[in-house]
């Protein structure tokens, strides 16, 4: 395999999934209460993309992985201390707002501009990776928009697997309805792949990988370009927390037979 790949992974940061979230209104639109205080993690599906990218790059000597991340510099720095131990990459940080409420169109424009400016990036070898949806906005459109802006018309979403061939054509599995995968063969690069879970477990923390990454991460963070996202087109009418509290009936004294009968009766109504 002598075809090196240039893999750009777009990955944002999101609140740690276990946190309690509460929306608030601010001068720049809606946000999350204490958003900067909440522990953050790399967006889970984008993290899958990063691990797959590192795995793929390792199989193709000479390949390179860039991680393009938009978020507040301090938060990015914090999250990178965990992520940097898991996979080798060069960070391309963009110092911008956090959260799911900014307009994806603005985000995509900034990221596309950032990717275009990456020195040494060969777009004919480009695999643009990311999560198929973020855990914050969850719109599943940013990556496609970046792809379109960069003129890439082979796009795949909900990807769980890629098998790269020697000639840089590849077979890809995308999630489709009904728990099925659509299987496609793409003739070559560049391509956009929005990843779902993928096939790899979360890599172990490797201190050597971390140290090696950190030589470029910290200087990159110090030079992170500050951006403001415009949201002229988008207007939030209301943002609220759903009330899903139910009046739970806790049944402690029924035998398995009785419970089974009640359940079958309940199911049978369909």
């Amino acid at each position: 395999m002598s075809n090196p790949l240039h893999i750009v992974v777009c990955a944002g940061i999101v609140p740690d999934p276990l946190q309690t979230l509460e929306p608030v209104s601010g001068p720049h639109g809606p946000g999350l209460k204490n958003e900067m205080v909440l522990p953050a993690v790399l967006d889970p599906w984008a993290a899958s993309a990063l691990y797959e990218a590192a795995h793929l790059a390792a199989k193709h000597p000479g390949s390179k992985v860039w991680l393009v991340a938009l978020g507040p510099k301090a938060k990015l720095q914090q999250v990178m201390m965990t992520v940097a131990q898991k996979a080798g990459f060069e960070l391309v940080p963009v110092d911008g707002p956090i959260g799911g409420f900014p307009d994806a169109h603005s985000t995509a424009a900034v990221l596309a501009e950032t990717i275009s400016a990456i020195a040494g990036l060969d777009k004919t070898r480009l695999l643009l990776f990311g999560g198929w949806e973020s855990a914050s906005r969850g719109a599943g459109i940013t990556l496609q928009l970046i792809g379109e802006i960069l003129g890439i018309t082979d796009q795949f979403q909900g990807v769980d697997r890629i098998d790269m061939r020697a000639d840089c054509s590849f077979e890809v599995l995308e999630r489709v309805e009904g728990g099925m995968h659509q299987e496609s063969v793409c003739a070559g690069l560049p391509a956009v792949l929005g990843w779902a879970t993928g096939t790899l477990a979360e890599p172990r923390n490797n201190p050597q990988t971390g140290m090696s990454n950190m030589r470029t991460i910290l200087p990159a963070l110090q030079k992170a370009r500050p951006v403001a996202l415009s949201g002229d087109s988008l207007r939030y009418v209301a943002v609220s927390l759903p009330r899903q509290q139910r009046a739970t009936r806790v049944v402690k004294d029924m035998s398995p037979d009785e419970i089974a009968r009640e359940l079958v009766e309940w199911m049978g109504a369909e």
Partner: peptide, 14 residues
Amino acid sequence: WFYRQRVEAVLSRA
């Protein structure tokens, strides 16, 4: 919905 079905929003565009 935002944040994985945790926050609900109503929005509009011009």
